[in-house]
Computed example of a mutant assay.
Amino acid sequence: MTSSSSVQQAREALGKRLREIRKDSGLTARELASRAGWHESKCSRIENGRTVPSDDDLRAYTLHCGAADQTDDLIATARNIDGAYVEWRRMERSGLRRAQESVIPLWERTRHFRAYSSWLIPGPLQTRAYIEALLRSIRDRRALPDDLEEAVQVRVDKQRILYEGPRRFAVLLEESALRHRIGGPAAMAGQLGHLLSLATLPNVSLGVIPLSADRTALWPVEDFWIFDDAQVNVELVSAFLTITQPHEVGMYAQTFSELADSAVYGAPARALITSAIDSLR
């Protein structure tokens, strides 16, 4: 979990809150540890953000510090921290379908989507053939249980959000994402053609950053999604990262804005997509 500064800051914020509760009670860390039956260093590890407390740890804190009214809120806070950095092997241990379903509530409540990708076409804009090729590769590479058909269908069904409600989508692609061949030439040609079609939707803004763009000020970064101004999701090699710290969400929003300045839109973007299609022949 230490690979995310957002997660670490959330740990430290929780630890600071617990330290304040303990000090308000008049207990020292040693006294609290003694009453709870802990090693005397445990309070320090928790209060300095080195350890995420368990539910029982938090119940002990609030019991001995006379703050039982805060127990439920503290437990919910700690559980959210634990869910901020989730390894793929944990999320996908029963197959790919669960991972696809896990983001549906977030997608349904979001009204403004911003996505940046340097290597793949983002999920809502993918064709079934493209999705199937991607998920088959993930299934095989990670040796997952085979629920490919169900997972593909979940992802296809999620694409209804493009057409439902007052939702807006701003998508930025590096030109390289148009050139990476996923699923073979025919599947890729179909995907790029579908992209041209979706770019005409009134609620979709599609920008492409040309390979020829000057990247001195801002080079390609990790792929990410911004959901309203509340949350950022990043897919790492080993895990799925959720960022909710406001200042970090703001950093991604600023990065998205700067990347958008390097992109082309409309006819120039369509020309880059058409060029990628032509290269498949």
Score class of each variant (00 low, 15 high):
Val7His: 14
Ala13Ile: 09
Leu14Phe: 05
Leu14Arg: 06
Leu14Ala: 07
Arg22Met: 07
Glu31Ala: 15
Ala33Pro: 08
Arg35Trp: 02
Gly37His: 08
His39Gly: 10
His39Cys: 07
His39Lys: 15
Cys43His: 13
Asn48Arg: 15
Pro53Gln: 10
Pro53Lys: 07
Asp55His: 10
Leu58Trp: 02
Leu58Tyr: 04
Asp69His: 09
Gln70Ile: 06
Gln70Arg: 15
Gln70Gly: 03
Asp72Lys: 15
Asp72His: 06
Asn80His: 11
Tyr85Gln: 11
Trp88Arg: 04
Arg90Gly: 05
Arg93Asn: 13
Gln100Ser: 06
Gln100Asn: 04
Pro105Asn: 12
Leu106Ala: 05
Trp107Arg: 12
Arg109Asp: 09
His112Trp: 11
Arg114His: 10
Ser117Glu: 11
Thr127Asp: 09
Arg141Tyr: 11
Leu144Tyr: 02
Leu148Ser: 00
Val154Trp: 02
Asp157Gln: 14
Ile161Lys: 10
Pro166Glu: 15
Ala170Trp: 13
Leu173Ala: 04
His180Tyr: 07
Ile182Asp: 02
Gln191Lys: 07
Leu192Ser: 03
Gly193Tyr: 03
Ser197Val: 12
Leu198Ile: 00
Ala199Asn: 07
Ala199Glu: 08
Ser205Cys: 04
Ile209Asp: 02
Thr216Val: 11
Glu222Leu: 08
Phe224Ser: 07
Ile226Asp: 09
Asp229Asn: 06
Ala230Cys: 03
Ala239Glu: 09
Phe240Val: 02
Thr242Arg: 10
Ile243Glu: 03
Pro246Tyr: 06
Glu248Gln: 13
Glu248Met: 12
Thr255Phe: 01
Ala260Ser: 15
Ala260Asp: 13
Val264Trp: 01
Tyr265Gly: 00
Ala269Cys: 01
Ser275Met: 03
